[in-house]
Amino acid sequence: MAILEVKGLSHTYGGNTPFINDAVKDVSFSIEKGEIIGIIGHTGSGKSTLVQHLNGLLKPTDGTVLLDNEDIWKNPREIRKVRSQVGLVFQYPEYQLFEETVFADIAFGPKNMGLEGDELKNRVIETCKMIGVKPEYLEKSPFDLSGGEKRRVAIAGVMAMRPKVIVFDEPTAGLDPKGRENVMQIIKSYREATDATVVIISHSMEDMALLADRVIVMNKGELVMFDTPEKVFSSGEKLLEIGLNVPIVTRVFYELKKLGVNVPQDVFTVERAVEVLCEIRGCKDA
């Protein structure tokens, strides 16, 4: 059953001004429970606008968003409940930290949901355990942490609300390779612990190929593709046309083919590449 369904969603910025801008045009898709969905698209393709509709931060100019088959805007006063069910982690979430201690900052979300006392405390500690925030950090000021740790705490702040759907807007932007891996690990841990549905906006085709069950491709506010990474990346020409790319490994295989080596074109991860090459060259252990 679809947990999140978007029907004919359009959003226009600056309705009554001369600066009218269709950020999202007639987008429809549905996400099944437990899926990992990737969203890729050029800068300004409407990805960020799109995800801000999923938790009701933006109200669609046209169309509906259904969470568990219910229109999230059916009762506008209850929109804050939707926000705790669909968590949204913004780009550079560490810039939203504000409390005196890490504990208080992570507790902000659940507190807004009405949790208090032991329940609140347990929720925070549980979340920290789940994604590996060290207990001794809880009493520190979030501003004393390193960049990567800050981001981890900020993400924990959203996860502490236990959203059923969690949306990340470029969660690895500005991090070093180790930091990126960390963030990806956090996302995986949360998913394992809660069976949550995950939506990730990313510029990293490698991450998409590795993680996503299905990928949404956005271009100029329109949804151009919504399919498995295999299908999406095998239409590489189309991706290149709209200014996107395919994973580096895939590009290597494209070039190999051009050089006349007979290799398949649907290789998107390094692991798969090793397998394929071993088959061809006949290694002993793949």
């Binding site: 931060l57 949204l88 979430p93 810039y95 939203q96 902000f108 979300g109 807004n112 949901m113 959203v158």
Partner: peptide, 13 residues
């Protein structure tokens, strides 16, 4: 606006 949205996403009223 960004910060407001981020805090709203964490349920800020």
């Amino acid at each position: 606006e960004k910060v407001m949205n981020a805090q709203k996403a964490r349920g800020a009223d």
